[in-house]
Every structure is written in structure tokens, then in C-alpha cells.
């Protein structure tokens, strides 16, 4: 099921049209996304900005197939997945999407290397030796080659977030979705992580969709999409 608009926009690897999402129940129920349409293109870094509660993160989770829309459709790599079953959405996440959140969500009992290998092990596209080689390569790219064997719990906050970036890139996803990826980092680490995301996206022709409150970072992205009250403005 591919819409005429989606066919027209062939460079968009991830698209949504007329997305609606309500959150909460009964009197607390809020219409968080009000018919949002969006497209992410390869090699482009897009920032979604706006005040707290405007629906940025909710949109990101919808695009990341982590949540289901109440209305509208989402296409990833040409496949309509808004109403697809859990198995198809999970498989699409593993193959095409990488996530970086404000909190790193590393498995603290595992080493940096094992954390980066986690998505690769699930996808099973590479041999164990190739997985380890790629994970080491990614850790080197984020400046953590010498800390590959260190347990995630023994890394600094900036290092943990860089491991999370390496993990997001593990399966060479078409799209990297980042929710306030520098929100918990100091200025130096914020700059390092942001520069890393931009560089890798351009080098590997990946789309980066980033939710941020930081206007300076947003200004340095290729596209900035401001949101308010559940709509792009």
C-alpha cells in the first residue's frame, strides 16, 4: 500500500502522512499529534524542534514504530507499517532503524563491544567474527576503540552516549532517530555526539531525524521542522 505522494517523493526513506495520536485516558486524554505529515531523506539531518509537550517525541516514536498511530500511515523503505503486525514492525526496526535516546539505555552488565553487537546478533546478517570487527570499527569511529572491553557501567556519561550512537549504527540503518541525544551531556560531549551523528549520516547516506531543544544544534542541521500543538508550523 503506497500512496501517490510517497511514490512521488522517492528520496524519502521514512514518511508519514496525516498521523494522529491521542495519549492519556478519559479526562486526561490529549490529542498529541494532529494530522502530522513528514518525510526523512537519505544523507539529510533533520531537526524537529518545539516547546515541551508539542508532540516531538511522540512523533519520533511513531516514526520509529515504537508506538502505534490512532490515524494516518507510516512508510519505511516503501512498506506501509502504521497498522502492520508487531512482527513486521519489529523486523523493520531491526533492519532499517537506529535509535539514540536522551538516556543511553545500554545494558550495563555488558561491555561496550557487546552492547554494540546486540542489534547485529539479532539481525544475524554477519558472522560472529564480522560482527565483532564491525563493532570495533564503530567504537573506533566514536573514539572508544580502547574501551571496547570495558563494562558499560564503567564508562562516563559522554562515553555511554557515544556507545549508544555506535549501537544505533550497528546494522547500517537507513534512518537514525535521535530523541534529545545530547540532552544529558555537557557542551563538549554534546558537540562530539552531534558532529558524529552528522558525519556518519553523510558518509553513509543515512537519514537522521533528531528531536532537540537546543537551537544551536537545530540551526546546524540540514532541515529544521518546528512543531507546536501537535502540528508542524
Amino acid at each position: 500500500m503506497t500512496s501517490p505522494t510517497a511514490l512521488a517523493d522517492r528520496s524519502a526513506v521514512l514518511r508519514c502522512e496525516n498521523l494522529h495520536r491521542h495519549l492519556g485516558a478519559s479526562e486526561a486524554r490529549a490529542h498529541v499529534l494532529r494530522g502530522v505529515s513528514f518525510a526523512a531523506r537519505r544523507g539529510e539531518v533533520c531537526a524537529i524542534v518545539g516547546p515541551s509537550g508539542c508532540g516531538k517525541s511522540t512523533l519520533l516514536y511513531q516514526l520509529g514504530l515504537l508506538d502505534r498511530p490512532d490515524g494516518g500511515e507510516i512508510w519505511l523503505d516503501g512498506a506501509a507499517l502504521g497498522g502492520a503486525d508487531d512482527e513486521a514492525r519489529t523486523a523493520a526496526r531491526g533492519r532499517h532503524l537506529g535509535f539514540v535516546f536522551q538516556f543511553h539505555y545500554l545494558l550495563l552488565e555488558f561491555s561496550a563491544l557487546e552492547n554494540v553487537m546486540l542489534p547485529m546478533r539479532k539481525l544475524g546478517r554477519l558472522t560472529p567474527a564480522a560482527m565483532e570487527a564491525r563493532a570495533r570499527e564503530l567504537l573506533a569511529a566514536v573514539g572508544l576503540a580502547d574501551k571496547a572491553a570495558r563494562p558499560a557501567a564503567h564508562l562516563s556519561g559522554g562515553e555511554q552516549q557515544r556507545v549508544a550512537v555506535a549501537r544505533a549504527l550497528a546494522n547500517e540503518p537507513a534512518v537514525i532517530l535521535a530523541d534529545e541525544p545530547t540532552g544529558n551531556l555537557d557542551a563538549a560531549n554534546s558537540e562530539a555526539v552531534f558532529a558524529l551523528l552528522c558525519r556518519l549520516a553523510r558518509e553513509h547516506r543515512q537519514a537522521v531525524v533528531m528531536v532537540t531543544h537546543n537551537p544551536e544544534l537545530a540551526a546546524r542541521c540540514d532541515v529544521t521542522r518546528p512543531m507546536r500543538d501537535g502540528r508542524f508550523v
Binding site: 519489529t90 535509535f99 539479532k122
Partner: peptide
């Protein structure tokens, strides 16, 4: 729950 969520986000199924 957070570790479960990130595993699900990285392609692990409910069965996994």
C-alpha cells in the same frame, strides 16, 4: 523495563 524496551527497539521480538 528500559533494557527490555531497548531490546525491542533494536529488533528483538516479543518471543525473544
Amino acid at each position: 523495563t528500559r533494557e527490555i524496551a531497548i531490546l525491542r527497539a533494536t529488533g528483538h521480538t516479543r518471543r525473544d
